[in-house]
Amino acid sequence: MNREHIKIKVKDFNFFYGEEQALKNVAMDIYKNEVIGIIGPSGCGKSTFLRSLNRMNDVIPGVKYEGTVTLDGKNIFAHGIDVVDIRRKVGMVFQKSNPFPKSVFDNVAYGLRINGEKNKDVIAEKVEKSLMGAALWGEVKDRLSASAFDLSGGQQQRLCIARALAVEPEVLLMDEPASALDPTATSKIEELIQELKKNYTIVIVTHNMQQAARISDYTAFFMMGELIEYDVAGKVFTNPSKKITEEYITGRFG
């Protein structure tokens, strides 16, 4: 594994919703082409952390942050940084699946079109590739022009993954992508993540300990806005250095 290259470096990071502090002094190095699993009890700031990595929190009024998040060495909060560019490089799949009220095809093609791709053949080809990448192609290839809302919940979530893949980001943020899915769809997504790891750096939030243990290379445990433990997944799950981590992963609370 390539532990040379730090893709994202979070340093002294604090985040506030108005007066309420949601992240406290978080520091984390995220290596290229690895899967980072983020675990922790509900409300501990997992989504907030994830959404800070592509500045998605900017859309919420009244938020404040301190500290730095660097992507390939560049601070994404620096003055004059192009947020649009950051978000193109750092793709995101949301906790609740959120396809557009458009056709299956147009959902995936959206990112290509807004980024200036005009060639219909190129678009069609990349849409197919992305849908294959999201393990959805077989199920939708005959109804690409159907409304995305006609798909099942699990298919919609994979469609959102395909939409994120289409613009070929470098990092993929996934917020409990499998929380609303059945075991079959979940295992499909897990396989997919292993596959995607070859080309992407993936940060994934999950509530499911087994899942985190299965898929992540590194695991981060958050509690009440603090990063309690961050280490190789094997270590976190078999021999955590903090007692509270052990209590959480063995299910004694949370």
């Binding site: 978000r87 793709g91 959206y110 990112g111 959102c160």
Partner: peptide, 18 residues
């Protein structure tokens, strides 16, 4: 319009106008 649509659009690198 639900904020989730807006966020999904921003997430693939769309500008505010787009």
């Amino acid at each position: 319009v639900p904020r989730s649509f807006t966020e999904a659009s921003y997430a693939v690198g769309a500008t505010k106008w787009q």
